[in-house]
């Protein structure tokens, strides 16, 4: 398993390199001239040229690419074109906020989703199932900006239980975590339910029941463990998405995280920030997937890594 993990980690390098090439050339293909965007409406052609020089955009593209890759290898992603601060500083300041919020949202939504999913599966086509799935469908279809604003207007403006914006204390995390986790909880519930229903049809469940194992043990020991594989896969995917920073939730709650950074960067065609963020997202996804793969082995010891 250790060798497998190492091999996968080494495999990261070519993947990230390919991603870097794609990102670099794709964002340069986007319409929109960062120098002119940075210069603003009132700027003259002269200003734009000065800014172009200042940002290093006057150099030929291959040279810019070389500078980007050689810098990236040394962990230097350059300076943000928008704020002129090092990209690493920009990301380092925001990443913890997104990470914490992701954990806060995932922790409640996974537990909640699993519970609802299991209960729905056990009581298939009965009231708990209908209730659970109605909740799940609402969770998926209710847009998160609307949910965020609704929660804010009820609990911050109306009841004054929680602050509207900010990210300093645990109380600040509650509303954004609920908003962000709602969709995940819903997806998890539906996934758990269908995985469970599949598993409950299997022979070994019938065997377990027929040899007199208590129903709760059947569900938890035989059912849950086998249903976990698809559920963990989904969990990993969701986790990876949330780590990218939710643009919508971060905007509504003015959360100082990665999503807003990306939004600002794309608006201003802030190439260095976009590049670094996309690379980071890819890295996160690959790592999360690796962890998920390793979890498979723990859940199901018959899985072998080669």
């Amino acid at each position: 398993m250790f060798r497998y993990a190492l091999k996968r980690l080494l495999g990261l390098i070519p993947t990230l390199f390919i991603v870097a090439i794609f990102v670099f050339f794709f964002i340069h293909l986007l319409p929109g001239d960062p120098a002119r965007l940075a210069a603003g409406q009132e700027a003259s052609a002269q200003d734009v040229e000065l800014i172009r020089k200042d940002l290093g955009l006057d150099k030929p593209l291959p040279q810019q690419f070389l500078r980007f890759t050689s810098g990236a290898l040394r962990g230097d992603f350059g300076k943000s074109m928008r704020t002129k601060r090092p990209v690493m500083t920009e990301i380092a300041e925001r990443f913890p906020y997104t990470l914490n919020l992701t954990f806060a949202a995932m922790s409640w939504s996974v537990v909640f989703g699993l519970l609802v999913g299991i209960i729905s599966a056990i009581h298939r086509n009965h009231l708990p199932d209908h209730l659970g799935m109605t909740l799940a469908v609402s969770g998926i279809s209710f847009p998160s900006f609307a949910l965020g604003l609704l929660l804010m207007s009820v609990f911050s403006v109306g009841l004054k239980w929680f602050p509207t914006v900010g990210a300093d204390t645990p109380r600040h995390y509650i509303l954004p975590a609920i908003t962000l986790g709602a969709g995940v909880a819903a997806v998890m519930a539906r996934f758990t339910r269908s995985a469970f229903l599949d598993v409950l049809k299997d022979d070994y469940i019938r065997t377990a029941r027929s040899k007199g194992v208590a129903e709760s043990m059947v569900i938890l020991k035989h059912g849950l463990r086998n249903a976990m594989i698809p559920v963990v896969t989904m969990m990993g995917l969701q986790f990876g998405f949330l780590l990218g920073g939710s643009i919508v939730v971060e905007r509504v709650f003015n959360w100082p995280g990665m999503g807003r950074l990306l939004l600002d960067a794309v608006d201003m065609r802030d190439y260095p920030v976009i590049q670094a963020e996309v690379l980071l997202f890819s890295l996160q996804f690959i790592l999360v997937n690796l962890v998920v793969d390793l979890l498979y082995g723990i859940i199901n010891p018959t899985i072998r890594y080669k």
Binding site: M152, S153, V165, V252, R260
Partner: peptide, 18 residues
């Protein structure tokens, strides 16, 4: 000086007294 990009969020802030 708090930067809050979303219009609805700013409105909520002033209504909540923040």
């Amino acid at each position: 000086w708090k930067s809050v990009t979303d219009n609805n969020t700013r409105t909520a802030m002033i209504q909540a007294g923040e």
